[in-house]
Simulated scan of single mutants.
Amino acid sequence: MKKGVPIILLIFLISTCLFSQQRSFKVVAKSNTGETVNLYKDLYALVIGVSDYQYGWPDLPNAVRDADEIGDVLSDLGFKVTRVKDPTKNELMTAFDDFIFNVGQGKDNCLVIFFAGHGHTEKLAYGEDMGYIVPRDAPNPDEDMSGFKFKAIDMHTVEAYARRIEAKHALFLFDSCFSGAIFNISRAKPPLYISYKTARPVRQFITAGGADEPVPDNSIFKRQFIEALQGEADRNEDGYVTGTELGEFLQEKVVVYSREAQHPQYGKIRDPSLDKGDFVFQLRSKPDETIQYKPDETIQYKPDETIQYKPDETKQEIGYGYLIISSYPPTEVEIDERRYRVAPPLIEIRLLAGRHTIKFFNKELRIEKTIVIELLKGERKRIHERFN
């Protein structure tokens, strides 16, 4: 008997270790064959918007707001979001450094970097097209080419940052137009399902258009990106959107809605060590099973046989709806004096149609707000509260 104890203990320890390892991943996908694919332990995003340009570029009044909206959507999906507004070159490089050399070094993290602002393409002396993203203090190249090249961030610099990332997956999105020389433009259909190959390292890039294509300040790219993460790009309805699915969706939709004025480009870095995997967005958390409403089974209702029982038709019309709740910064949520977990991640709750009182609170940040909403039968009402 004593000899069997170490073996049983060893099996228990191995099982516990494997279970704990899986639970440490925030994003765990299931393939179509049922295999578990461990993806990410933590999700991080850097969102950058440049609206106020200083030297010869037209201002983009919506760029900072667009970046904020993208940040809110990513926060709803569980990302820890860093926001940078109207950066100079030095501020932009510092933001990249802080982000990439901190959270970008966790090998099981995933990173999203989103930039909304001017982009530009220049043909270099040796014939190559070079794309640039433009910080607020870069001069217009028509007026000062040397100053522009000194201040703008070229794609070779972005590529160098991408290679310095240790995180498994990184996705760069540019709501700008320029040449995508650092990545192979994808023309293949995305895989139908997530597999073990999905978890391999990858650096992916999506731009709002090609070189010299105008990008309107009222961004079509931003609107379609948000719709994609709300489920429109999930063509196989598995609850995930991959980077390749996203690129294909944006290319298709932006071309149509821009009337072929914009042609988004997407692809993976030109490196066989970093082009095998695929970025994965988990669209939203599953409803919390602790908040499912069930009828009280301890009371059996039997109609009186001497009286014809008819259900109250007005009550039947009440029905149920769904609330989808999130906040930034994260808060605890109380609905009709019942407390739920912190949001984000998203809380999805099935409730009786009618009036409900929702309270958001975070004691550390001294946040407290109460709202009253009306939920209709069959409605899926989304509520996002942002606190400054």
Rank of each mutant, 00 (worst) to 15 (best):
F96C: 12
K222I: 13
I307N: 13
L323S: 05
K369M: 03
I7C: 12
V342Y: 02
L18R: 10
T94M: 09
T314P: 00
I70S: 02
I371H: 01
D304V: 09
I220A: 12
F221G: 02
L376M: 10
R259Y: 14
E289P: 12
V47A: 05
P287E: 04
A63V: 12
G378S: 12
T331E: 01
G71E: 04
D212M: 11
I325V: 07
N388L: 10
T207R: 04
R164H: 08
P330E: 12
I371W: 02
L39P: 02
K268H: 10
D98A: 07
Y340C: 01
D312S: 13
E128N: 06
S326A: 11
T314S: 15
D52E: 15
A199M: 04
L92D: 03
T94Q: 13
P58A: 08
F225P: 05
L250D: 06
D72V: 12
S258T: 11
E317W: 00
R270T: 11
R338G: 03
E143K: 07
E313A: 14
G71V: 04
K310P: 00
H120P: 00
T207Y: 09
I113Q: 04
K369Q: 14
G127E: 07
I206R: 02
R270C: 09
L18D: 08
A228C: 14
G4C: 04
E252Q: 09
G4S: 13
D52M: 05
P303L: 05
R386H: 06
Y196C: 00
Y53V: 01
T207F: 05
K315I: 14
S179I: 02
F148N: 05
P272Y: 03
D142N: 08
D52L: 07
E166P: 00
K168S: 15
G277E: 06
G267L: 10
E368F: 05
L171I: 01
H384P: 09
L124F: 08
Y340W: 05
G49E: 04
V47T: 01
P6N: 06
I299T: 13
L46F: 04
S179C: 05
D278R: 10
T290H: 12
L173H: 07
S186E: 15
N362A: 07
F225V: 03
F221A: 03
R23G: 10
P287R: 00
I194L: 11
A261Y: 07
T207P: 02
K189D: 00
I349P: 03
T33L: 14
K268S: 09
V333K: 02
Y126E: 14
Q265V: 11
E289C: 00
L351E: 09
V254W: 07
I133T: 06
G209M: 05
R382W: 08
K286G: 09
